[in-house]
């Protein structure tokens, strides 16, 4: 079922397809290169795209690490980070993959979440996934990632995907239990995306609240 080219790494540039084509942003917080976190992200994206006509943009947070710190300090994103934030806002769906550090998502991953403009993920279908040094960390997806995205009012699909070292090595194959979870999660994400219209990103500069409303009946 998995032709090799389908799991090839995603291209890194976002191209606007025709209207009917949907868009995915695939955020990966892996630190090493190559990274198993990115590998998992690519497999999730490929599985989703087998079910959905979608462009996908891969975002490696490692490449934006300085931009993220700078944004936290200055309050504004550098141009490339701004483009990424914009792509997330306009995406039909998000695949978010982090390594588990000390029983939770990594600090780099959280920094990215912390600079997302308020409301960016509201009603957005999100697939959460993680990698870790031991399968004992797998529930971090349920006790750390899922509540984080619930707070952001994202629509998190029921299946979260955790990949432990045994899913890559120890005789594991591309048709093992990890692949089955990836397929199930991707199917859930595709359904949530398909049942929604593309997101409309409100622009406060286009439609300001009229001053009479701000005044709330006060006289001037």
């Amino acid at each position: 079922m998995n032709a090799p080219h389908e799991n090839a790494p995603l291209r890194s540039t976002f191209t606007q397809g025709p209207r009917s084509r949907r868009s995915l942003v695939v955020v990966s917080a892996g630190l090493s290169q190559p990274s198993s976190t990115r590998l998992l992200a690519d497999q999730l994206a490929a599985a989703t795209r087998r079910r959905l006509d979608a462009d996908a943009e891969a975002v490696d947070l490692r490449d934006r690490a300085h931009d993220l710190t700078n944004h936290l300090l200055t309050g504004f994103p550098a141009p490339e980070l701004e483009r990424v934030l914009d792509a997330v806002a306009h995406a039909d769906g998000l695949i978010a993959v982090t390594p588990i550090f000390n029983a939770s998502y990594s600090g780099l991953f959280k920094s990215f979440v912390d600079v997302l403009p308020e409301g960016t993920l509201a009603d957005k279908p999100v697939l959460i996934a993680a990698t870790g040094g031991t399968a004992r960390h797998s529930l971090a997806l349920e006790h750390a990632m899922r509540p984080l995205f619930a707070h952001l009012r994202a629509v998190v699909v029921p299946t979260a995907v955790f990949a432990a070292p045994e899913d890559w090595g120890g005789g594991a194959t591309a048709h093992g239990p990890l692949a089955a979870r990836i397929e199930r999660a991707a199917a859930e994400l595709a359904v949530e995306i398909e049942r929604r219209e593309p997101p409309v990103v409100p622009d406060p500069f286009d439609e300001p609240t009229p001053f009479s409303e701000l005044l709330g009946g006060q006289s001037t």
Binding site: G75, F76, P204, F205, T209, P210, T220
Partner: peptide
């Protein structure tokens, strides 16, 4: 805050953007 630009416009007052820490596009 777009509300403050709106306020300045409503009264016909001046609007000052202290752009010193901000990119041009913003």
């Amino acid at each position: 805050s777009p509300q403050i630009a709106e306020q300045a416009a409503y009264y016909g007052d001046g609007f000052f953007h202290n752009n010193i820490f901000w990119p041009v596009e913003h």
